[in-house]
């Protein structure tokens, strides 16, 4: 950390870096299953993104303190994967419970996608990656926020692209998933254009 730069700037740059430069889907390959599965419905894509944002930020908020203040002092760091997956799964159920009971509007918005987030690679990948790389709490939260926003951006853009793709006559073998993957490859090359944005120090 550069002492001449205020912390808020480092924090924001870390968010931008994990949102655009090291994008969670196009560069780190975390949320591919739901990326392909959501298809050509922008509303469903946005709901899925909203659910992933909720769960990622809360999971990162809870898991880093558990690792640093419970698992490491007790010298049982090997329990991290087991702990994280149980915490993520419990968080999903608890959030779902609250939404079901107290907020029908939020349930309509993204409630049905919540149980699918437990097996989404993005959430566990971000949380495990934070502690594997030994990041501080601020950088972990920046990573989680950037990942979530990046996921929403990419999944919504991709669903709009797929609406256009269906209007064209692709060859029969490529129709559906194959042409979607090749389009994702082009998106990935486009996002490479962001790579010089944040100076890595």
């Amino acid at each position: 950390m550069n002492p001449a730069v205020p912390y808020i700037v480092t924090f924001l740059l870390a968010i931008v870096s994990s949102m655009l430069i090291d994008n969670v889907v196009l560069s780190r390959f975390y949320g591919i299953c739901s990326f392909i599965g959501v298809g050509n419905k922008p509303k469903a894509a946005f709901s899925m993104g909203l659910a992933v944002t909720f769960v990622t930020i809360m999971a990162a908020l809870v898991c880093w303190p558990i690792y640093t203040f419970v698992l490491q002092p007790l010298q049982i760091p090997f329990m991290d994967t087991l702990t994280y997956i149980l915490v993520i799964a419990s968080l999903v159920q608890i959030v779902g419970l609250f939404i079901k009971k107290y907020s029908p509007a939020l349930y309509k918005a993204f409630g049905i996608y919540l149980p699918l987030i437990t097996t989404n690679c993005a959430v566990l990948g971000v949380v495990q990656g934070n502690t594997d790389s030994g990041l501080s709490f601020g950088m972990s939260m920046a990573n989680a926020i950037g990942t979530a926003i990046g996921f929403v951006i990419v999944i919504v853009i991709f669903s709009f692209i797929r609406i256009r793709l269906e209007e064209y006559k692709t060859p029969k073998a490529f129709r559906g998933i194959a042409i979607a993957l090749i389009t994702a490859a082009l998106m990935s090359i486009a996002f490479l254009g962001f790579s010089g944005m944040v100076p890595s120090n």
Partner: peptide, 8 residues
Amino acid sequence: EAKCHGCN
């Protein structure tokens, strides 16, 4: 459809 789209 909305439910199953997320799955693969």
